[in-house]
Design a protein around this nucleic acid. Structure first.
Lengths: 132, 132
DNA sequence: CCGCATCCTGTCGGATACTG
DNA sequence: CAGTATCCGACAGGATGCGG
């Protein structure tokens, strides 16, 4: 954890964090995790709700970062298989802790939210800036 | 890890993940982690690069989720202290694995990126959709 | 089937100015 | 100091249509 690292490394850490912390990346890694290989369409089903545009983009970036491999079969109709690299799988492991946390504590979070929202019921609603 | 949960729980997990996975939340949790309490401005310095608007919003959402407490001192000039709740600290622990991963593997990621970018040098640049 | 190109919208998020 | 209010540009990301 923690902070005072060299600004160079610091910047890179942040960049990678922001890369991984987008809307779909974690879900794609999760979907791929534990499987040998998966086709594009199957992956899209497993993730659920992702457009093919975003799935494609997400997979390309993961491929670029060396976390996922992309294998194109020269068949017709085309078939493309994705799988985690060892590096990607190791990230999956690291993320596992977060998944466990969410599964374990999400009800507390839900209760906290309701309590928070209740408390400012009558008067000025929404202390969260830019919220509707 | 993994998938086949009830769609209800599944949705909540995803929502919380998406909440945590924004540009600043992880960095704020990290900055707060291990400290007892921190003032708004100090926090802003530690995170680095965050506008007060985004810091405020991020903190409000964390407060709503029960991960952070907000204490206003009725002094002049005003003073507001933020700190992680036990729940927030436990999330910090879960995230620790991700931090460690990034610190450990980011050089491999960098090398993978360069290799990827090199490989499609001459012809059609950028296989990543919507990239410049 | 996979994925690229285009269009279009909402939201994210920075800059700035103002208040208690 | 710790916000709030406003403006605005940039981009994430969905929908659709085409192409190999």
């Amino acid at each position: 954890m923690s902070s005072e690292t060299l600004p160079k490394k610091e910047a890179l850490v942040r960049e990678i964090l922001e890369r991984v912390a987008d809307k779909w990346t974690l879900l794609v890694i999760d979907a791929l995790d534990g499987e040998k290989e998966m086709r594009f369409t199957r992956l899209q089903e497993r993730v659920g709700g992702v457009s093919q545009k975003m799935l494609t983009r997400t997979l390309r970036l993961l491929e670029r970062d060396g976390l996922v491999t992309r294998r194109v079969h020269a068949t017709v109709p085309p078939r493309v298989d994705y799988r985690l690299t060892p590096l990607g799988a190791s990230l999956g492991e690291a993320l596992c802790g977060v998944w466990v946390w969410v599964g374990k504590h999400m009800e507390k979070v839900e209760r906290a939210r309701h309590a928070y929202d209740e408390k400012l019921r009558p008067a000025r609603r929404s202390r969260v800036p830019d919220a509707a």
